[in-house]
């Protein structure tokens, strides 16, 4: 994932005949990485599921979650996937202005989501649910925190892409870089799809 290959960089390579499979190294590497991330988030979600019921007297999901608020921020993150994919398709057309526009929109939506998460965390802490309060709180903050860190890394990558594009260093041949960052971004979105359903919406105590 480190970098483009020289062949691509010099712009004379035909993607289809470069590698044994026709998939570029960078893209394959990103997919492998995402496959590995499934096990990471799977472990965190499992931990959360095992610990989601609070002990008597402790605050649990029912007491703290504000589903309305989280639904809106989930929607925001979901829509950022659309802007991301439109950004990718703009650069494939060679429309650099729109690429920047869509990428900026994506990063902004990501930032809105992240601010929502920070707001949510502060609200929970104010209600008296700190990181060390219960097994539920530790598991909840760790799972959503890991996701938040992934969103942050994604935003940093998007901003770097926008800056590169402004400086003219993101030519149409490198559209794949946008695609690969997009893959990461969609993955982060997918993980939130899981978290939104499993953590927030499925009622605690329901026979799962």
């Amino acid at each position: 994932m480190a970098s483009v290959t020289v062949a691509e960089a010099h712009g004379h390579a035909d993607h289809a005949h470069e590698t044994n499979t026709g998939i570029s190294n960078n893209k394959l590497a990103m997919w492998l990485f995402l496959g590995s991330e499934c096990l990471l988030f799977g472990g965190l979600i499992t931990t959360y599921l095992v610990y989601k019921t609070p002990l008597p007297g402790q605050k649990g999901p029912k007491e703290v979650f504000d589903i309305g608020f989280t639904s809106v921020s989930s929607f925001v993150l979901l829509m950022s996937s659309l802007t991301m994919v439109l950004g990718h398709s703009a650069i494939e057309r060679g429309d650099h202005y729109r690429t920047r526009l869509w990428l900026t929109a994506t990063a902004s939506l990501g930032a809105v989501f992240l601010s929502g998460q920070i707001y949510e965390f502060t609200a929970f802490v104010k209600e008296g649910m700190g990181y060390t309060s219960s097994r539920f709180s530790s598991a909840f903050y760790t799972l959503t925190g890991f996701h938040g860190v992934h969103v942050t890394v994604g935003i940093i990558m998007l901003v770097s892409l926008i800056l590169l594009s402004i400086r003219g260093k993101l030519p149409t041949e490198r559209a794949e870089t946008v695609e690969i960052v997009g893959l990461y971004w969609h993955f982060v979105d997918i993980v939130w799809v899981l978290i939104f359903a499993v953590v927030y919406l499925i009622p605690v105590g329901a026979p799962v």
Binding site: T21, G22, L28, W31, L34, G35, S36, E37, L39, G42
Partner: peptide
């Protein structure tokens, strides 16, 4: 390419 889907699905199924 189907290989990419296979890689990802492998991770999901395993998880």
């Amino acid at each position: 390419n189907k290989l990419l889907a296979t890689t990802f699905v492998a991770g999901i199924v395993l998880a």
